[in-house]
Design a protein around this nucleic acid. Structure first.
Length: 174
DNA sequence: AGCAAGATCGGT
DNA sequence: CCGATCTTGCTG
């Protein structure tokens, strides 16, 4: 039985939500066709004090959605060509987000959005009620590993060394 | 108004 | 290793 994840799932601390997203089903509906994949790698970005998190720049037009309640989508363009897909977590006023880095048949945050046709138009999309993007539980319990986040050396040793990247190898093709 | 850097990727 | 490509936040 696949159940769509609701506010109760997303409105918790990002360090709780991020690892729990591993093994969940990412669902994208495009022109009536449902595309399902399994989330295999994510990264947590936590609060204004986390110098790797865009919210550390303050509440700006770009980071605004991260200050909202969990369950919303935060997307932004990087290097002029890649859209990064994030899920906002935590309560309103506590800026956090989870970057989706890998699904079972596609690795790389930029590649995932390209394949699923996700762009800036999804900024602020509500995963709880959206008819084109949401997440479902599939009752699986993959073995989860953690390591440092990728590409955040600019944040300095303290934040770049946090083991806030979560992933599993349970769905690798054989 | 101008500028440097970026939660990346694909090709040498 | 390097270039693509453009938004963003910071400086002035």
């Amino acid at each position: 039985m696949n159940i769509r994840l609701g506010n109760d799932f997303f409105c918790r601390d990002v360090l709780v939500v991020a690892p729990e997203l591993i093994g969940k089903t990412l669902v994208r509906s495009i022109d009536g066709t449902i595309h399902k994949s399994i989330i295999t790698e994510v990264e947590a970005y936590r609060g204004v004090e986390d110098l790797a998190c865009h919210a550390s720049k303050g509440r700006t037009k770009r980071t605004e959605v991260m200050f909202q309640q969990g369950g919303l989508v935060y997307v932004y363009l990087i290097y002029g060509m890649y859209w990064m897909l994030n899920f906002v977590t935590g309560d309103s006023g506590n800026p956090q987000a989870v970057l989706i880095r890998g699904i079972n048949d596609c690795y790389g945050p930029g590649r995932i959005t390209k394949r699923l046709s996700i762009n800036g138009d999804f900024y602020g999309e509500d995963l709880v009620i959206s008819s084109r993007l949401w997440v479902e539980d599939r009752n699986s319990s993959p073995v989860i590993q953690s390591d440092t986040r990728i590409g955040v050396e600019y944040a300095g040793e303290e934040w770049a060394s946090k083991p806030w990247r979560f992933f599993t190898n349970d769905y690798l093709k054989k």
